[in-house]
Design a protein around this nucleic acid. Structure first.
Lengths: 110, 110
DNA sequence: GGTTGACCTATAGACTCTCTTCATATAGGA
DNA sequence: TCCTATATGAAGAGAGTCTATAGGTCAACC
């Protein structure tokens, strides 16, 4: 859903900070936690999970889901936890820098 | 320099809101307005200017710069001005949604 | 009891777009 | 002669989108 590059990874890691979950569940969590504002596509999410696993930020294992289905559960690794903190902090810096340049939102007439 | 996708366009439009400028000047403005935090690459900026012009958000014309050099000056069009307002507002929404999911920054030990 | 369909969960390929990197070009001024 | 100002283009990487496919489970329905 037209995310800004890199943000998805951070959101996924943040979601897994709350506990292990399978991909489908991660997408659902992000959607509902954002009140449906962020509509994560599975076609974006699964490659993101691969990336994160390849980098060692998360690890996975097959289990049976609460709906009695075969699902790959992902959990945050120690390295992933550190990485998340760094990314979050970089994100906050970046956002405030951009906000400083952009200035206040112009008043929009409804 | 490792911007989030789409943000560059918004920053460029915002910079041109302050008045027409040539590409080189836009890059310098963004750099200095961000206290060098955002290091805009020319290889990113010029394609961005092409994009924006193709979409009609900005228009250009050759002039002589204050350093007596040939330079292409860009200015915001009326459509670009509207577009900027929309993008700024979408950006603000997106950022606050992400911030809500991410929660507060963990305290980092110095 | 068997069929149907909805939902859960996962994978993969092709494509698009943005940004990065690098190379090149020209002109003015010191 | 060299540095700064200014511009262009091509090649490549990486992320995200779109679309198609796949199989298992459960509930509803006839």
């Amino acid at each position: 859903m037209e995310l800004l590059q890199g943000t998805l990874d951070m959101l996924v890691l943040r979601t897994l900070l709350a506990g292990p979950q399978h991909g489908y569940g991660v997408a659902k969590s992000i959607r509902s936690n954002s009140s449906e504002a962020l509509d994560i596509e599975f076609g974006s999410l699964y490659p993101a999970l691969k990336r994160l696993e390849a980098k060692g930020w998360i690890a996975s294992g097959w289990k049976t889901s609460e709906h009695n289905r075969r699902a790959k559960y992902y959990r945050l690794t120690a390295a992933g936890r550190k990485h998340l903190v760094r990314e979050h902090s970089k994100w906050a810096d970046f956002v405030s820098t951009v906000a400083r340049i952009m200035g206040p939102l112009p008043q929009v007439q409804k």
